[in-house]
Design a binder for these strands. Structure first.
Length: 358
DNA sequence: GACCCGTGGGA
DNA sequence: TTCCCAAGGGT
Protein backbone atom coordinates (compact mmCIF):
# COMPACT_ATOMS: atom_id res chain seq x y z
CA UNK A 1 0.00 0.00 0.00
CA UNK A 2 1.59 3.29 -1.05
CA UNK A 3 1.36 6.51 0.90
CA UNK A 4 -1.57 7.94 -1.04
CA UNK A 5 -3.62 4.79 -0.61
CA UNK A 6 -2.79 4.68 3.06
CA UNK A 7 -3.98 8.20 3.71
CA UNK A 8 -7.08 7.47 1.66
CA UNK A 9 -7.62 4.39 3.79
CA UNK A 10 -7.15 6.37 7.01
CA UNK A 11 -9.59 9.03 5.86
CA UNK A 12 -12.13 6.33 5.12
CA UNK A 13 -11.72 4.85 8.57
CA UNK A 14 -12.02 8.24 10.22
CA UNK A 15 -15.28 8.64 8.35
CA UNK A 16 -16.42 5.27 9.63
CA UNK A 17 -15.68 6.25 13.23
CA UNK A 18 -17.60 9.49 12.73
CA UNK A 19 -20.63 7.69 11.32
CA UNK A 20 -20.61 5.32 14.25
CA UNK A 21 -20.35 8.14 16.80
CA UNK A 22 -23.26 9.97 15.15
CA UNK A 23 -25.31 6.78 15.39
CA UNK A 24 -24.30 6.44 19.04
CA UNK A 25 -25.42 9.99 19.84
CA UNK A 26 -28.81 9.26 18.29
CA UNK A 27 -29.26 5.85 19.94
CA UNK A 28 -27.45 6.22 23.25
CA UNK A 29 -28.86 4.06 26.04
CA UNK A 30 -29.10 5.38 29.56
CA UNK A 31 -27.19 3.02 31.85
CA UNK A 32 -26.54 3.50 35.59
CA UNK A 33 -22.76 3.66 35.12
CA UNK A 34 -22.80 5.76 31.96
CA UNK A 35 -22.10 9.49 32.31
CA UNK A 36 -24.48 11.98 30.73
CA UNK A 37 -23.48 13.18 27.26
CA UNK A 38 -20.39 15.38 27.54
CA UNK A 39 -19.84 14.60 31.23
CA UNK A 40 -16.81 12.63 32.37
CA UNK A 41 -17.43 9.23 33.92
CA UNK A 42 -16.47 8.32 37.50
CA UNK A 43 -13.53 5.86 37.35
CA UNK A 44 -14.91 3.89 40.33
CA UNK A 45 -18.26 3.46 38.60
CA UNK A 46 -16.64 2.52 35.30
CA UNK A 47 -14.34 -0.01 36.95
CA UNK A 48 -17.10 -1.60 39.05
CA UNK A 49 -19.43 -1.92 36.06
CA UNK A 50 -16.74 -3.28 33.75
CA UNK A 51 -15.81 -6.04 36.21
CA UNK A 52 -19.47 -6.99 36.62
CA UNK A 53 -20.05 -6.91 32.87
CA UNK A 54 -17.34 -9.50 32.18
CA UNK A 55 -19.25 -12.36 30.51
CA UNK A 56 -22.46 -11.02 32.04
CA UNK A 57 -25.45 -9.30 30.46
CA UNK A 58 -26.34 -5.64 31.03
CA UNK A 59 -29.78 -6.60 32.36
CA UNK A 60 -28.28 -8.85 35.05
CA UNK A 61 -25.63 -6.33 36.09
CA UNK A 62 -27.92 -3.33 36.64
CA UNK A 63 -29.35 -4.52 39.97
CA UNK A 64 -26.00 -5.66 41.35
CA UNK A 65 -24.34 -2.38 40.35
CA UNK A 66 -26.94 -0.32 42.22
CA UNK A 67 -26.67 -2.56 45.31
CA UNK A 68 -22.88 -2.29 45.42
CA UNK A 69 -22.86 1.46 44.88
CA UNK A 70 -25.39 2.00 47.65
CA UNK A 71 -23.52 -0.16 50.12
CA UNK A 72 -20.01 0.95 49.09
CA UNK A 73 -20.17 4.44 47.50
CA UNK A 74 -16.40 4.71 47.06
CA UNK A 75 -13.38 2.55 46.39
CA UNK A 76 -12.22 3.33 49.94
CA UNK A 77 -15.45 1.97 51.40
CA UNK A 78 -15.21 -1.19 49.31
CA UNK A 79 -11.58 -1.73 50.30
CA UNK A 80 -12.51 -1.49 53.97
CA UNK A 81 -15.27 -4.12 53.74
CA UNK A 82 -14.76 -7.73 54.88
CA UNK A 83 -14.36 -10.15 51.94
CA UNK A 84 -17.33 -12.17 53.21
CA UNK A 85 -19.64 -9.19 52.77
CA UNK A 86 -18.45 -8.61 49.22
CA UNK A 87 -18.94 -12.28 48.29
CA UNK A 88 -22.40 -12.24 49.85
CA UNK A 89 -23.46 -9.26 47.70
CA UNK A 90 -21.92 -10.92 44.64
CA UNK A 91 -23.80 -14.21 45.17
CA UNK A 92 -25.71 -15.21 42.03
CA UNK A 93 -23.55 -13.19 39.62
CA UNK A 94 -21.13 -16.05 39.00
CA UNK A 95 -17.40 -16.18 38.27
CA UNK A 96 -16.63 -15.56 41.93
CA UNK A 97 -12.92 -14.94 41.31
CA UNK A 98 -14.15 -11.60 39.98
CA UNK A 99 -15.47 -10.70 43.43
CA UNK A 100 -12.28 -11.78 45.16
CA UNK A 101 -10.18 -9.79 42.69
CA UNK A 102 -12.56 -6.82 42.91
CA UNK A 103 -11.96 -6.65 46.63
CA UNK A 104 -8.20 -7.13 46.25
CA UNK A 105 -8.07 -4.47 43.53
CA UNK A 106 -9.88 -1.93 45.72
CA UNK A 107 -7.33 -2.51 48.46
CA UNK A 108 -4.40 -2.08 46.07
CA UNK A 109 -5.88 1.14 44.67
CA UNK A 110 -6.28 2.51 48.18
CA UNK A 111 -3.00 1.31 49.67
CA UNK A 112 -0.66 1.62 46.68
CA UNK A 113 -2.29 4.32 44.54
CA UNK A 114 -3.69 6.62 47.25
CA UNK A 115 -7.26 5.82 46.28
CA UNK A 116 -7.00 6.87 42.62
CA UNK A 117 -7.06 4.43 39.70
CA UNK A 118 -4.08 4.46 37.32
CA UNK A 119 -5.02 6.35 34.14
CA UNK A 120 -3.19 4.28 31.54
CA UNK A 121 -4.05 0.93 30.00
CA UNK A 122 -0.77 -0.56 31.24
CA UNK A 123 -1.18 0.76 34.78
CA UNK A 124 -4.72 -0.55 34.96
CA UNK A 125 -3.78 -3.99 33.62
CA UNK A 126 -1.34 -4.43 36.50
CA UNK A 127 -4.31 -4.53 38.91
CA UNK A 128 -6.06 -7.78 39.94
CA UNK A 129 -9.02 -8.71 37.74
CA UNK A 130 -8.14 -6.21 35.00
CA UNK A 131 -6.99 -7.76 31.74
CA UNK A 132 -6.71 -6.70 28.08
CA UNK A 133 -10.32 -5.75 27.61
CA UNK A 134 -11.05 -4.12 30.96
CA UNK A 135 -7.79 -2.16 31.05
CA UNK A 136 -8.49 -0.68 27.62
CA UNK A 137 -12.16 -0.04 28.44
CA UNK A 138 -11.45 1.90 31.64
CA UNK A 139 -8.60 3.85 30.03
CA UNK A 140 -10.86 4.87 27.16
CA UNK A 141 -14.15 5.45 28.99
CA UNK A 142 -12.92 6.98 32.26
CA UNK A 143 -9.72 8.70 31.09
CA UNK A 144 -10.15 9.39 27.36
CA UNK A 145 -7.18 7.29 26.26
CA UNK A 146 -7.40 6.13 22.62
CA UNK A 147 -7.11 2.46 23.63
CA UNK A 148 -8.34 -0.35 21.38
CA UNK A 149 -11.24 -1.88 23.30
CA UNK A 150 -12.03 -5.43 22.17
CA UNK A 151 -14.75 -7.52 23.76
CA UNK A 152 -16.91 -10.27 22.25
CA UNK A 153 -19.11 -7.71 20.48
CA UNK A 154 -16.17 -5.87 18.96
CA UNK A 155 -14.63 -9.16 17.84
CA UNK A 156 -17.79 -9.84 15.87
CA UNK A 157 -18.12 -6.33 14.42
CA UNK A 158 -14.46 -6.06 13.43
CA UNK A 159 -14.17 -9.60 12.07
CA UNK A 160 -17.09 -8.75 9.77
CA UNK A 161 -15.84 -5.28 8.85
CA UNK A 162 -12.49 -6.71 7.74
CA UNK A 163 -13.71 -10.23 6.91
CA UNK A 164 -11.15 -11.85 9.22
CA UNK A 165 -10.95 -15.49 8.15
CA UNK A 166 -8.61 -16.63 10.96
CA UNK A 167 -10.39 -18.48 13.76
CA UNK A 168 -10.74 -17.23 17.34
CA UNK A 169 -9.09 -17.18 19.78
CA UNK A 170 -5.99 -17.13 17.53
CA UNK A 171 -7.38 -14.16 15.60
CA UNK A 172 -7.46 -11.91 18.67
CA UNK A 173 -4.20 -10.19 17.75
CA UNK A 174 -5.31 -9.35 14.22
CA UNK A 175 -8.68 -8.12 15.45
CA UNK A 176 -7.06 -5.91 18.09
CA UNK A 177 -4.83 -4.38 15.39
CA UNK A 178 -7.81 -3.69 13.13
CA UNK A 179 -9.67 -2.15 16.08
CA UNK A 180 -6.71 0.13 16.76
CA UNK A 181 -6.80 1.26 13.10
CA UNK A 182 -10.35 2.53 13.38
CA UNK A 183 -10.25 3.89 16.96
CA UNK A 184 -10.37 7.70 16.86
CA UNK A 185 -8.26 9.92 19.12
CA UNK A 186 -11.36 12.00 19.86
CA UNK A 187 -14.07 10.42 22.05
CA UNK A 188 -12.41 6.97 22.21
CA UNK A 189 -14.61 6.00 25.17
CA UNK A 190 -17.83 6.77 23.30
CA UNK A 191 -16.44 4.98 20.25
CA UNK A 192 -15.77 1.85 22.31
CA UNK A 193 -19.24 1.88 23.81
CA UNK A 194 -20.73 2.55 20.38
CA UNK A 195 -18.95 -0.50 18.95
CA UNK A 196 -20.26 -2.66 21.79
CA UNK A 197 -23.80 -1.31 21.46
CA UNK A 198 -23.64 -1.93 17.72
CA UNK A 199 -22.51 -5.49 18.32
CA UNK A 200 -25.20 -6.25 20.88
CA UNK A 201 -28.12 -4.63 19.06
CA UNK A 202 -27.37 -4.53 15.33
CA UNK A 203 -24.36 -6.63 14.38
CA UNK A 204 -25.81 -9.68 16.17
CA UNK A 205 -24.48 -13.24 15.92
CA UNK A 206 -27.48 -14.42 13.91
CA UNK A 207 -29.39 -12.44 11.28
CA UNK A 208 -27.59 -9.12 11.81
CA UNK A 209 -29.71 -6.04 11.09
CA UNK A 210 -27.44 -4.66 8.39
CA UNK A 211 -30.11 -2.27 7.12
CA UNK A 212 -29.89 -0.43 10.45
CA UNK A 213 -26.08 -0.43 10.51
CA UNK A 214 -24.46 3.02 10.24
CA UNK A 215 -21.19 1.57 8.90
CA UNK A 216 -22.40 -1.14 6.53
CA UNK A 217 -20.82 0.82 3.64
CA UNK A 218 -17.40 -0.05 5.08
CA UNK A 219 -18.21 -3.68 5.88
CA UNK A 220 -16.41 -6.31 3.80
CA UNK A 221 -18.67 -9.14 4.97
CA UNK A 222 -21.80 -7.16 4.08
CA UNK A 223 -20.32 -6.50 0.67
CA UNK A 224 -19.69 -10.22 0.22
CA UNK A 225 -23.02 -11.18 1.78
CA UNK A 226 -21.56 -13.74 4.22
CA UNK A 227 -21.86 -11.86 7.53
CA UNK A 228 -22.93 -14.89 9.56
CA UNK A 229 -19.70 -16.66 8.70
CA UNK A 230 -17.89 -14.31 11.09
CA UNK A 231 -16.34 -14.44 13.58
CA UNK A 232 -14.82 -17.80 12.70
CA UNK A 233 -14.43 -19.85 15.88
CA UNK A 234 -12.60 -23.02 16.88
CA UNK A 235 -14.96 -25.95 17.61
CA UNK A 236 -15.98 -26.52 21.24
CA UNK A 237 -15.69 -29.54 23.45
CA UNK A 238 -18.71 -31.43 24.76
CA UNK A 239 -19.58 -31.01 28.45
CA UNK A 240 -19.36 -34.13 30.62
CA UNK A 241 -21.91 -34.84 33.37
CA UNK A 242 -20.78 -35.04 36.99
CA UNK A 243 -22.95 -36.55 39.69
CA UNK A 244 -22.97 -36.12 43.45
CA UNK A 245 -25.03 -36.37 46.61
CA UNK A 246 -25.44 -33.38 48.91
CA UNK A 247 -26.26 -33.38 52.61
CA UNK A 248 -28.96 -31.33 54.36
CA UNK A 249 -28.29 -31.51 58.10
CA UNK A 250 -30.66 -29.60 60.37
CA UNK A 251 -30.75 -28.81 64.07
CA UNK A 252 -33.05 -26.40 65.88
CA UNK A 253 -33.94 -24.42 62.77
CA UNK A 254 -30.34 -24.22 61.58
CA UNK A 255 -28.69 -25.95 58.61
CA UNK A 256 -25.06 -27.02 58.34
CA UNK A 257 -23.21 -25.15 55.57
CA UNK A 258 -19.64 -25.32 54.34
CA UNK A 259 -17.25 -22.43 53.65
CA UNK A 260 -15.50 -23.52 50.45
CA UNK A 261 -11.74 -23.09 49.94
CA UNK A 262 -10.61 -19.78 48.39
CA UNK A 263 -9.33 -21.33 45.18
CA UNK A 264 -11.21 -23.30 42.56
CA UNK A 265 -14.88 -23.70 41.75
CA UNK A 266 -17.13 -21.35 43.79
CA UNK A 267 -14.06 -20.38 45.80
CA UNK A 268 -14.75 -18.67 49.12
CA UNK A 269 -18.50 -19.16 48.79
CA UNK A 270 -20.83 -21.00 51.20
CA UNK A 271 -22.43 -24.28 50.11
CA UNK A 272 -23.83 -27.62 51.16
CA UNK A 273 -21.57 -30.50 52.08
CA UNK A 274 -21.55 -33.15 49.36
CA UNK A 275 -19.69 -36.05 47.83
CA UNK A 276 -16.99 -34.97 45.36
CA UNK A 277 -18.40 -33.77 42.02
CA UNK A 278 -17.12 -36.47 39.69
CA UNK A 279 -17.82 -37.47 36.11
CA UNK A 280 -19.60 -40.82 36.48
CA UNK A 281 -22.53 -42.77 34.96
CA UNK A 282 -24.52 -43.10 38.23
CA UNK A 283 -24.93 -41.48 41.62
CA UNK A 284 -22.66 -42.64 44.45
CA UNK A 285 -24.04 -45.73 46.22
CA UNK A 286 -24.53 -45.86 49.99
CA UNK A 287 -21.12 -47.39 50.75
CA UNK A 288 -19.58 -44.44 48.98
CA UNK A 289 -21.60 -41.51 50.31
CA UNK A 290 -21.29 -42.89 53.85
CA UNK A 291 -17.62 -41.94 53.81
CA UNK A 292 -18.46 -38.33 52.87
CA UNK A 293 -21.44 -37.59 55.14
CA UNK A 294 -20.77 -34.76 57.60
CA UNK A 295 -22.27 -36.64 60.57
CA UNK A 296 -23.34 -40.12 61.64
CA UNK A 297 -27.03 -39.30 61.93
CA UNK A 298 -29.82 -41.16 60.12
CA UNK A 299 -29.72 -40.00 56.50
CA UNK A 300 -32.88 -40.25 54.42
CA UNK A 301 -33.10 -39.67 50.64
CA UNK A 302 -35.14 -36.69 49.47
CA UNK A 303 -37.40 -36.76 46.43
CA UNK A 304 -36.12 -35.14 43.26
CA UNK A 305 -32.86 -34.08 41.69
CA UNK A 306 -31.16 -30.76 41.00
CA UNK A 307 -29.50 -30.01 37.66
CA UNK A 308 -27.08 -27.21 36.99
CA UNK A 309 -24.67 -26.41 34.17
CA UNK A 310 -21.30 -24.80 34.77
CA UNK A 311 -18.90 -23.49 32.14
CA UNK A 312 -17.30 -26.85 31.49
CA UNK A 313 -19.60 -29.55 32.94
CA UNK A 314 -23.17 -30.47 33.82
CA UNK A 315 -23.95 -31.36 37.43
CA UNK A 316 -26.73 -33.62 38.72
CA UNK A 317 -27.26 -33.76 42.45
CA UNK A 318 -29.52 -35.73 44.77
CA UNK A 319 -30.09 -34.78 48.37
CA UNK A 320 -29.99 -36.65 51.67
CA UNK A 321 -31.46 -35.14 54.82
CA UNK A 322 -30.92 -35.78 58.52
CA UNK A 323 -31.62 -34.26 61.95
CA UNK A 324 -28.62 -33.62 64.19
CA UNK A 325 -28.69 -34.01 67.98
CA UNK A 326 -26.59 -30.91 68.45
CA UNK A 327 -24.81 -28.17 66.50
CA UNK A 328 -21.65 -30.17 66.22
CA UNK A 329 -18.48 -28.44 65.14
CA UNK A 330 -17.23 -29.49 61.74
CA UNK A 331 -14.11 -28.44 59.85
CA UNK A 332 -15.01 -25.50 57.55
CA UNK A 333 -18.64 -25.90 58.59
CA UNK A 334 -21.02 -23.39 60.16
CA UNK A 335 -24.68 -23.35 61.18
CA UNK A 336 -27.07 -20.91 59.58
CA UNK A 337 -30.76 -20.19 60.30
CA UNK A 338 -32.93 -21.92 57.68
CA UNK A 339 -35.44 -19.07 57.76
CA UNK A 340 -32.66 -16.68 56.77
CA UNK A 341 -31.08 -18.82 54.05
CA UNK A 342 -31.27 -16.07 51.40
CA UNK A 343 -29.07 -13.76 53.44
CA UNK A 344 -26.10 -16.11 53.45
CA UNK A 345 -25.56 -15.63 49.71
CA UNK A 346 -25.60 -19.13 48.26
CA UNK A 347 -24.37 -19.69 44.70
CA UNK A 348 -27.25 -20.61 42.40
CA UNK A 349 -26.33 -24.28 42.22
CA UNK A 350 -26.82 -24.65 45.99
CA UNK A 351 -30.09 -22.73 45.92
CA UNK A 352 -31.36 -25.29 43.40
CA UNK A 353 -30.28 -28.16 45.64
CA UNK A 354 -31.65 -26.53 48.80
CA UNK A 355 -35.17 -26.22 47.42
CA UNK A 356 -35.36 -30.04 47.39
CA UNK A 357 -35.15 -30.12 51.18
CA UNK A 358 -37.97 -31.85 53.12
C1' DG B 1 -2.34 -21.94 24.07
C1' DA B 2 -5.33 -24.76 26.84
C1' DC B 3 -7.96 -25.07 30.65
C1' DC B 4 -10.57 -23.42 34.55
C1' DC B 5 -14.23 -20.48 36.21
C1' DG B 6 -21.25 -19.17 36.82
C1' DT B 7 -25.39 -17.88 35.41
C1' DG B 8 -29.56 -16.61 32.88
C1' DG B 9 -31.89 -15.77 28.63
C1' DG B 10 -32.94 -16.41 23.83
C1' DA B 11 -33.30 -19.15 19.57
C1' DT C 1 -34.17 -29.78 24.97
C1' DT C 2 -30.06 -28.24 23.79
C1' DC C 3 -27.02 -25.00 22.26
C1' DC C 4 -25.06 -20.54 22.10
C1' DC C 5 -23.76 -16.51 24.03
C1' DA C 6 -22.84 -12.29 27.25
C1' DA C 7 -18.79 -5.36 28.12
C1' DG C 8 -13.03 -11.94 30.16
C1' DG C 9 -9.22 -12.97 33.52
C1' DG C 10 -6.04 -16.05 35.83
C1' DT C 11 -3.01 -19.84 35.70
Amino acid sequence: MNQDNKSEFTKCMTKTAKQLLDWYDRNRRDLPWRAAHGESADPYHVWLSEIMLQQTTVATVKGYFEKFLTRWPSVDALAAAPQEDVLQEWAGLGYYARARNLHKCAQVVVEVHQGSFPQTEEGLKALPGIGDYTGAAIAAIAFGEPAAVVDGNVERVVSRLFRVTDALPGAKKVIKAHTAEITPTKRPGDFAQAMMDLGSGVCTPKTPKCLLCPIRGACAAHEAGDMERFPVKAPKKAKPTRRAISFWLEHDGHVLLERRPQKGLLGGMPGLFSTPWEERPAFPAKEEWLTHRPSEDYWKPVEGMAKHTFTHFHLETKLLAAKADSKLNIENGFWHPVADLDAVGLPTVFKKIAVLRP
